[in-house]
Design a protein around this nucleic acid. Structure first.
Length: 222
DNA sequence: TGCCAGGCCGGGT
DNA sequence: ACCCGGCATGGC
């Protein structure tokens, strides 16, 4: 039986979104311009600060390598060197090559073609690919392909824990379903909500909890 | 100076 | 089904 490790009253979730949006405003996420750039960024940012990823993306752009063709043709070792700043560069070069290969083999090198399929099918496919776990899959689905899903990340977990909204045993899928179930089915809202949580996580909910000026202060349950 | 950042995989229990 | 070590750079 499915146990609930989420303690937040479901009705509060949308209030929290409204509070964040009013306090912070639209974030215009993902920080990346094309679907491909977003997808690559999603892989590179695994357990890594965005700052380090940004350097790697900039390097790829300068080399004119940020295209499906180039990423397909560049040797893995050279790709690894180009993305060195993002950490785990050998792992990430491998993952990137595998992802690009998937786009070619399954969708003839077309992310548009890929985007025609349903979110359920795509999520299943992505999760089957080496190097793509739930967060990376959901980031690609939501931000690169405009599909209906919610991204759960370390910020989401930390904010929920710090405010007493869940136990540490809550799983990725449990948290994701909580968002999907208790919010309007609105892709733009999912997009914005996660972006706002990242902002709060960076600004107010890092090392020492800075709860003074945090818009979520009034929702503290502990 | 050490600790940690927008995870994920594979092997062990 | 969980738990853990490995993967690695750059910022504070």
């Amino acid at each position: 039986m499915s146990q609930t490790n989420i303690l937040l009253r479901p009705g509060k979730l949308h209030d929290i979104y409204n509070t964040l949006f009013q306090a912070i405003g639209p974030r215009g996420w993902w920080p990346g311009e094309t679907p491909l750039e977003i997808a690559i960024g999603a892989i590179l940012t695994q357990n890594t600060s965005w700052k380090n990823v940004d350097k790697a993306i900039t390097t790829l752009k300068q080399k004119n390598w940020l295209s499906l063709e180039k990423l397909r043709d560049v040797p893995e070792a050279e790709l690894a060197d180009a993305i060195r700043s993002s950490g785990y560069f050998n792992q990430k070069a491998k993952k990137t090559k595998i992802f690009i290969r998937y786009i070619y083999e399954r969708y003839n090198g077309s992310l548009e073609k890929m985007a025609e399929r349903s979110v359920e099918k795509l999520r299943e496919e992505l999760l089957a690919i080496y190097g793509i776990g739930p967060e990376t899959a959901d980031s690609i689905l939501l931000y690169a392909l405009g599909k209906q899903t919610f991204v759960v990340d370390a910020y989401t977990r930390r904010i929920f824990l710090r405010h007493g909204w869940m136990t540490e045993k809550a799983t990725y899928e449990e948290i994701r379903q909580f968002f999907l179930t208790h919010l309007p089915r609105d892709i733009q809202l999912y997009n914005e909500f996660h972006a706002l949580l990242v902002f709060v996580g960076n600004r107010f909910c890092r090392r020492k909890p800075i709860c003074d000026r945090c818009p979520l202060k009034k929702y503290l349950t502990t």
